[in-house]
Amino acid sequence: MTWPLFTEWFLPGVWITVQVTLGSAALALLVSFVIGIARSSRLWIVRFAAGCYFEVFRGTSALVFMLWMAFAFPLMFGWVFVPMAAGVVALGLTYGAYGSEIVRGALQSVPAAQREAGIALSFTRAQRLRRIELPQAWPEMVPPFNNLLIELLKGTALVSVISVADMTFAANLSRLASNESAPAYTLLLVAYFVLAFVLTRGMRLVERRAKAGVGQRPEPRRGLRAARKTNPKADAQSAGGVG
């Protein structure tokens, strides 16, 4: 990779990757909670609607959806997304579906006795959810959310396909410009690895705070090697169902 390419494309590309990651993570988090809570609703119609969302989006290929958003959607509805918006929306909606399974599972893991204690103190349903169930479920959610965030970071490379100038886009540009691809792609892989490492560190901090918030001590762990290295994208496959 040449120096001008590095400073004018790759470095801004890193920033774009970070922006896309954070933007789609925020959207995915919102979707996770809305759909995850709705899937635990006592109203069947809410459960059903949220279940449908989950079934559709966990079956969706993020790349196909992204290309559809970028190319088919404008032709179908006459409304064009900025490429970056198409990428963020596609990633946020699909990864949010996986995240909803994390939220639902964590809510389900809160002991029934806690719900009963809440009833005994006359809390309303909403109060129980907000004051008892969600705060207790949160520390359970952080480690799988960390895994999902790493998946999401990797997923952001897809935006290069719809011409968002992230760091993958810069590496492709370098290949086309110089015909020499080894340094660019090696640098790119290392850059993703470093970002993943930084995100994991950050999430470890979140986890420690979350656990301290319920009087637990976090188990010690090293580097990227988390205790449970499952992929929430895959875990969501056999989960739940409509309703």
């Binding site: 290069s160 993958t168 590496a171 080894a182 690895f193 993943a196 990227l224």
Partner: peptide, 26 residues
């Protein structure tokens, strides 16, 4: 083995495909 698998798992498949397709043949 731990190092390699960690590296592969924490980097995007898309970029790995580019690497395999454009770099490896060099």
């Amino acid at each position: 083995v731990v190092g390699i698998t960690e590296f592969i798992r924490n980097t995007p498949l898309l970029v790995q495909l580019f690497f395999l397709f454009y770099v490896v043949p060099e």
